[in-house]
Design a protein around this nucleic acid. Sequence first.
DNA 1: TTTCAGTCAATATA
DNA 2: TATATTGACTGAAA
Length: 406
Amino acid sequence: MVRWRNARVPLIKTVGQRLFGETILGLTQGSVSDLLARPKPWHKLSLKGREPFVRMQLWLNDPNNVEKLMDMKRMEKKAYMKRRHSSVSDSQPSESSSVGIDYSQGASPQPQHQLKKPRVVLAPEEKEALKRAYQQKPYPSPKTIEELATQLNLKTSTVINWFHNYRSRIRRELFIEEIQAGGQSQGGTSDSPSTRSSRAVHSSEGDSCDGVDTDGPPEAKPGSLEADDYSNTTTKSQGGRAASAFEAGEEALRDARSSEKTETFQLETESLEDTDDEGRPKAPHRCSPAGSQHSGETPETTPNSAPEEDVSTSAASASVLTGEGSRKPKEDGVEKIPIVPSTSSTPAASTQKANSLESLFGFPEAACTRNTRDNTLRKKKAANLNSIIHRLEKAASREEPVEWEF
DNA sequence: TTTCAGTCAATATA
DNA sequence: TATATTGACTGAAA
């Protein structure tokens, strides 16, 4: 694992992803972890993606906050110790043996919402099969999906989700790889970005996505637009290391602290239309949809172009299964081996946390007059955010261009 | 309608 | 326990 992890972010490391995420960023631990492990260049982040960083910056603007958070951490720890102690000491020998959970003092009734369905866990064989299918067809047609689902005994929605997730995760992995490689080797293989991308996506993903970390697979080519793009718009890090917005945030903190209190990021609705500073593409960069992914940007680009209706469709799904040695039973095409540990589940409606911008920026609740005002409001918000971001970048780049890699 | 980015939250792993 | 992984979901854009 070569990626930089929160080890690079001392503050988070000390405080912990959970606490930091929940209290400062409004994100869950998993999200923070993900963010840390797979940083994206600033200019590639959508407005929403930038939000956590902006929050962090705002939060960091008050030096006391760090202290407060540390205190919070300490208190949490204390509380935890206390709980442990008490549960250990007065635990009635008998049933208290149910160690795992501290019901002990959790007076909270724990509503036991057993409505939740178990999470689907795909078996390795299933993943393998899906990967094979992906390699043949990153954008399978509904029919293919259907077939895959049937063959693997999964819900089609599971298959669809898997493809979505896989695509986007692969994309991120590759992006990181490219950055890393980009920084290292200028020369390099003659692989053209585009070529590579298609290949990479197909071959490397196996490793990259499932936790099998590829350690910077060599492949990434500097020439790729991605990389280019990256180095251009971001302050190039000489090492080619992929720094994260988090890191930048911390830099910014230092910066903010030392250099100016003045650079407060208050939100005025100053328009900043859609241009970032130096003409950076500020609008959320979206990878163009399937066919049009410009710029060898994301690797899977290539596959995209694959004609949806491809003939191989069934062939694809069929062959997918062939590779697996372990899974015998399905042979007949009828037999669906229930090995599938997966259990479909309906999503427990995830409580979408109230959106930050609102709370963060405290927009006039009047905004309620939705519809008509919605757009303007949204624009305002965007403008505000942009403005903040803009300043953030400025402030940050001022002193440590090298580190500031948004 | 489909894809994507971003996220949640359950679960796995260190 | 803290962190990493990953299936599922939401909302926006095309």
